[in-house]
Nucleic acid binder design. Structure first.
Lengths: 227, 227
DNA sequence: CGACCATTTGATATGGATCAAGCGATGTGG
DNA sequence: CCACATCGCTTGATCCATATCAAATGGTCG
């Protein structure tokens, strides 16, 4: 029984886009394929919780995932969004630092961490892949950090450009997440996100045909904002 | 010839405090010792620049280092502070993501990245260490991210607790960095940092006998703020 | 059609930024 | 040794971007 109704559009399939050498990809992907099982998660379902032992790592096959943590006062900070092809939940420690939830109905490949770490001990290539994936997360966290010190316009513009870069089309962004998710990712309120989108629309930088679809009309203008 | 006069207090020596298993430490430290040369850097000197090829990685022996990036509009964001025992400049990519500067006169061990990566390819332990160090950076970046969405009081309290945890004494923090550095680390202005410290002092949470020395009088109160 | 939920829009409040001045420690030259 | 310049820090007054509170709109599903 699913914890949430299987509703609406989970039509967010994309090609993996990891910048690694073909040889390594193949080799590593093969390892994953061998060890991983694909599991479905319903919209809103928890994939793992903060402070739970990190027994698995995960790869998004279809759908979208958010990781987050909740501060003492109830504010939620989203650490990252993961789209098809992205790996998440990779920890060196034995505990997850964030919780993970399915944003929409998802298919996620689940891989035993111990098995992969063991394999890494024998294969330099696998070890290098684990290291690279962690470093990619580090880069992502660092640029997320930079977003958080900017103005609302810069954050929203930066977010849209980031999503566009990860989308099949750099012109149209299909957002799997709600305004609240975006707000919690950017450290803003839902109202400010909404107002800023309206503002960008009025400035002819974007179109918002539906709330979950954003057309980037003027990358230059967005980049200019993205200080 | 030094780029900056050898002035004032660079009396910031601390014991390394990396949470790794003794066996691994020894093994890895030996590798480093073998490959690394200790170099002095004068206060304010650049250790490496953003976008420079990452040929080396570094370990602070004495002093303190900041990494930073400058946004288009001139704002500077400090990525991290590194104290004795900390490793920095470790990249999987071939380029540094941030610039690094000596905050005070420093002694820094410099290690050839290629040599270490090559060693990692043969030694699972070294590979694991590289991975662990990158993961530690990731943790640090993630908690830094969380700081940046908080209020000024929470950020300053969090910063002080972080510094205290890394200090030999958890009660007295000797700050190697200026208010401007702290401000750029916390995403605040120098004025707000100063005001907040005064506020915490008035609230009897801390003492500020000199501007670079902070006495934590009430950890509980600081923790409470650190939402 | 009507209820519900997400999003947008409007009005007001506020925390931190900005602009500006004062203060204290450190170092310099007379 | 003292007067003065400099620099880092603190304090004060005002402004503004974003949060907060509140209401209207719109899309979705029963």
């Amino acid at each position: 029984m699913l914890t949430q109704p299987m509703t609406t559009s989970n039509s967010f399939r994309r090609a993996p886009a990891q910048p690694v050498t073909p040889a390594r990809v193949t080799m590593f992907e093969n390892s994953i394929e061998l060890m991983g099982a694909v599991m479905p998660f319903a919209r809103g379902a928890e994939i793992y919780g903060e402070n739970e032992p990190a027994e698995y790592l995960y790869k998004v096959i279809a759908g979208a995932v958010r990781t987050y943590t909740v501060l003492k006062d109830g504010r939620r900070q989203i650490g990252a969004f993961y789209l098809p092809g992205d790996v998440f939940g990779l920890e060196v420690d034995d505990e997850h630092a964030f919780s993970a939830e399915a944003i929409v109905d998802c298919k996620v490949m689940v891989i035993k961490r111990r098995a992969l770490v063991a394999l890494a001990a024998r294969s330099g290539d696998v070890a290098h892949q684990l290291w690279t994936m962690t470093a990619n997360e580090l880069r992502r966290a660092q640029s997320h950090m930079l977003l958080l010190i900017k103005t609302a316009q810069e954050r929203v513009a930066g977010f849209l450009l980031e999503m566009a870069a990860r989308s099949p089309s750099t012109a149209v962004v299909e957002l799997p997440m709600s305004r609240q998710d975006i707000a919690d990712y950017l450290g803003l309120t839902i109202e400010t996100v909404s107002r800023t989108l309206t503002l960008l629309e009025n400035a002819a930088a974007i179109d918002v045909p539906t709330s979950r679809r954003i057309v980037l009309r003027n990358h230059a203008a967005l980049n200019r904002l993205n200080a």
